[in-house]
Amino acid sequence: MYAFEIERPTSVADAVSALSADEAQPLGGGQTLIPTLKQRLAMPSKLVSLAGIEEMKYVRRDGDVLVIGGGTTHGRIAREAAEHFPGLAALAGKIGDPAVRNRGTIGGSIANNDPSACYPSAAMACGATIVTNSREIAADDYFQGMFTTALEEGEIVTEVRFPIPEKSAYMKFEQIASRFPLVGVFVAKFSDRVGVGVTGASNDGVFRWTEAEEALAGNFSADALSGVTAPPASDMIADLHGTAEYRAHLIPVMTRRGVAAAA
């Protein structure tokens, strides 16, 4: 790692102010950023740790919306969301491993927008709202491709609001080494629509499989997908762990399983 200072503000306001410094960078749970720093792929002058901001750590239900503070760890979401939104709790409970879940936060994951991150699929499927220190952004507008989001420099994800579906499930087909999703599909059934968010697969990052959403909206069953063609392989990631064709193949498989498992 290069040398840098570390600051630990205890409020969002102080964090925003600290981030106004040159080359300052926010540090969520650090589970992605710290390995990146070790490889010397980032050279911040200062890291602003958000871990001490208690006002960003909560899971609460607000009517039909599950509201989660940006500083909430995956482990806490897995526990506290279970009663209200089991699909999301299950997603959180499968991220990384127990130690990673005790540090990594939803805000950090959403802000990084790794093409293989899990939460973005749920945010897209549910039509979540990403709340920052300065504004609210619809998920469809927020995720803008691999590692790219609508966030401005120094902007912090303070909260994520998930409309709670009637039924949902997350199906993660793991890359065998990192255990990130090779393909992850979040299926969310609402009274008036169905959302299908796909992560891990596409060169463009997380996306909604709208053809499947439409087919499932009228008939929420795995059979409804039989006539729907899979997203084209030409858009998919190809790497050591899976060809583009394989990823494209897995999307309907995981979607069908998600529909069958939704609870």
């Binding site: 570390i6 630990r8 540090l27 650090g30 589970q31 710290i34 390995p35 890291l47 740790s49 871990a51 001490g52 127990p98 130690a99 990673v100 005790n102 540090r103």
Partner: peptide
Amino acid sequence: LVKACTMFAAE
């Protein structure tokens, strides 16, 4: 439980 290699001492 945390991984001490993925957390700063200052934290």
